[in-house]
Design a protein around this nucleic acid. Structure first.
Length: 607
DNA sequence: ATGTATCGCGCC
DNA sequence: AAAGGGCGCGATACAT
């Protein structure tokens, strides 16, 4: 067994796919117990890697091997398929899974792993700053550090030795091998990138800034808010002015849980509902709401657009449930439900000669729960031809027409919501909420038992495991809500990644985004039909957590083939004509509510 | 200058 | 006894 440990010093990490062939500057590698070898010859390095039985690197698939794949033609797909890659970042997250939230986000870098597992971290200088960072500052950039600088070389040697040390603690099981295949396929999203409508993004940034400035001026003139900053209503002086403004309107302003003035959408809308006749308050609230609605998504997309006119988002599986994060820019959080915000997606385009093909998994979290709990009635609600939410409406209300009432009940109860919460969110009396939750437990006793069981398992073990065996850490004391929720999300995640693994190879470079239960591909227009058939075949299969379990069908559906990402939802958003690109190409329209022709496109910036 | 916490927007 | 999960990003305030 010949093992090779690898680390590469490069230009700035955010130029991984755009820097040019000189991106990889100095590589360090060691074979088995041998000394660390440094080289600037990446072809020599690739030869060493091809001869290795195991290749170890930290964030190998997100960085080092990705760089060699992109700039030096290394066939990483083959290495991964042959099970020869060991990414210590992937393994560390599987061997010691993160808790939810920010708490664990810094536990998985090589320095932290070294300190935790070996008692020793990266090479730093006296004040604790990374020696590499110091060198980059000194020479004016990571790509300008001389490759013969002794500290640079020492730093790299230490990193390879750290890597070798920590790798001894990081086992790789069958799930780990699968995870490497998943992450390599997803890394192609970063590598290929998503084309941006740069001109339109720039136009929208300018226009939005104009509109926001108008709103800020309005707040300053009427209520004395400061004129500096991008969100003066959230600054200390602005808050004080708003306190006074609310008082002048004769109302007690809304507060957050911590007693701070609440200026968020929900609080303001509730306040307006309480004082429908207060004209002064209405004006104040409308201005605040309009300013809150001004998000800077176009700006964020432009900030991450590279010289090739594309964004190369970062793909990460660092969440506690294993869900995939797509960041820089955050494609998982782009608008969709709101009539204005859904157009954020129109800035992302298919490649020339392509169309965007969106495919989503239907009720995937609930199907995951059904497969886990094996409640026959719950599984039956997913039988082919049945509509899950309608079946739930029958079970809960005896009335298939109450589909929309049933939806929040099933969703919320999987997440551990209580009767009080359900009553509030669904707008029903507490007693009714309690009765609904009892009915759910009576109709689906297997589901109720499963929730009890996984909560207890989590209390005892501190972990739950997805249907594919992914471990998920459950925070002490939060088992009641997070144990069933994590299983639903974690198994849904593995369902989606199973679909990714089942995609034919030619569609992998077509992947543009993954959004938890949806994938988006850019496919040649002439092959769209073929692509759609292939994607649906890949994403739909029978889910069976154990060999003797009853199977649950995984169902997928394609959306509209789009000329931009918003265009993909034109049928779904049938009452919002502007979602369709063809509508936005019209110079005028008759719909007074159209956010494109009356809002986005208004030169004066008036609403 | 840089990082953390908090808030509020958005997504599934 | 009750208990809605997981996130990313921007802006501000504040600590270092």
């Amino acid at each position: 067994m010949h093992r090779v440990y690898l680390d590469i010093e490069t230009g700035s990490a955010d130029e991984l796919y755009t820097y040019g062939t000189g991106f990889c500057r100095l590589a360090g590698y060691a074979g088995d117990d041998g000394q660390v070898v440094l080289t600037t010859d990446m072809d020599e390095l690739c030869d060493v890697l091809r001869s290795a039985d195991r290749i170890y690197a930290h964030n190998a698939l997100g960085f080092d091997l990705a760089a060699l794949e992109h700039w030096h033609g290394l066939d990483v797909a083959a290495l991964v398929e042959e099970g020869r890659v060991r990414d210590t970042l992937i393994l560390a997250r599987l061997c010691d899974p993160p808790l939810p939230g920010k708490a664990d986000s810094r536990r998985y870098n090589l320095d932290a792993l070294g300190r935790r597992l070996l008692g020793d971290g990266k090479l730093g200088d006296a004040d604790g700053q990374s020696a590499l960072r110091t060198l980059a500052d000194l020479h004016g950039g990571y790509d300008r550090i001389p490759v013969d600088d002794p500290t640079y070389r020492q730093y790299l040697v230490r990193d390879v030795e750290l890597l070798r040390g920590v790798s001894q603690f990081l086992a790789c099981d069958a799930y780990g091998l699968r995870e490497h295949r998943v992450m390599h396929r997803l890394s192609q999203i970063s590598r290929i990138g998503f084309r941006v409508d740069v001109a339109e993004a720039e136009r929208r940034v300018a226009e939005q800034e104009l509109r926001a400035a108008g709103l800020r001026a309005d707040l300053a003139a009427r209520y004395g808010l400061p004129t500096t900053g991008k969100a003066p209503h959230r600054s200390t002086a602005g808050m004080a002015a708003l306190e006074q403004a609310f008082a002048d309107c004769g109302v007690e302003p809304p507060r957050t849980a911590k007693g701070v003035l609440a200026t968020g959408k929900e609080a303001i809308i509730d306040l307006l509902a309480e004082h429908p006749e207060n004209v002064a308050l209405r004006k104040l609230c409308e201005t605040l709401l309009a300013l809150n609605g001004e998000r800077s998504t176009a700006r964020t997309i432009l900030d991450h657009t590279c010289a090739d006119g594309r964004v190369h988002p970062r793909i990460d599986a660092g969440q506690s449930t294993g869900r995939i994060s797509v960041t820089k820019p955050g494609l998982t959080v782009m608008g969709k439900r709101d009539r204005v915000n859904v157009l954020e997606r129109s800035l992302l385009l298919p490649d020339p000669g392509h169309v965007l093909l969106p495919v989503d998994l239907c009720q995937v979290d609930a199907r995951a729960v059904a497969a886990h709990c094996q409640d026959p009635a719950y599984i039956d609600a997913f039988a082919p031809g049945k509509d899950f939410h309608t079946e739930m409406a029958v079970a809960l209300f005896g009335d298939p027409a109450r589909r929309s009432d049933a939806k929040p009940v099933t969703h919320a109860t999987t997440y551990g919501m209580g009767a009080k919460g359900l009553a509030t969110s669904a707008g029903i009396p507490l007693q009714e909420a309690k009765a609904l939750m009892r009915t759910l437990d009576v109709r689906f006793p297997g589901l109720a038992r499963w929730k009890r069981d996984v909560r207890r398992t989590a209390e005892v073990e501190g972990f739950v495991y997805s249907a594919w065996g992914r471990p998920m850490r459950i925070e002490l004391g939060r088992e009641y809500t997070t144990a069933p929720a994590s299983l639903g999300q974690g198994t849904a995640r593995d369902i989606l990644t199973e679909g990714i693994l089942r995609l034919p190879a030619w569609l992998v470079p077509c992947l543009r985004a993954v959004v938890h239960d949806e994938i988006v591909l850019s496919v040649p227009t002439a092959r769209a039909e073929e692509a759609e058939t292939a994607v649906l075949a890949a994403l739909q299969f029978s889910l069976r957590p154990t060999p003797d379990a009853s199977p649950v069908p995984v169902l997928a559906a394609s959306g509209d083939r789009g000329l931009d990402w918003a265009d993909c939802y034109r049928t779904e958003k049938t009452t919002w004509p502007e979602v369709a690109r063809a509508h936005r190409d019209l110079s005028t329209c008759a719909d007074e509510q159209c956010t494109w022709h009356t809002y986005i496109n208004n030169e004066e910036g008036e609403i």
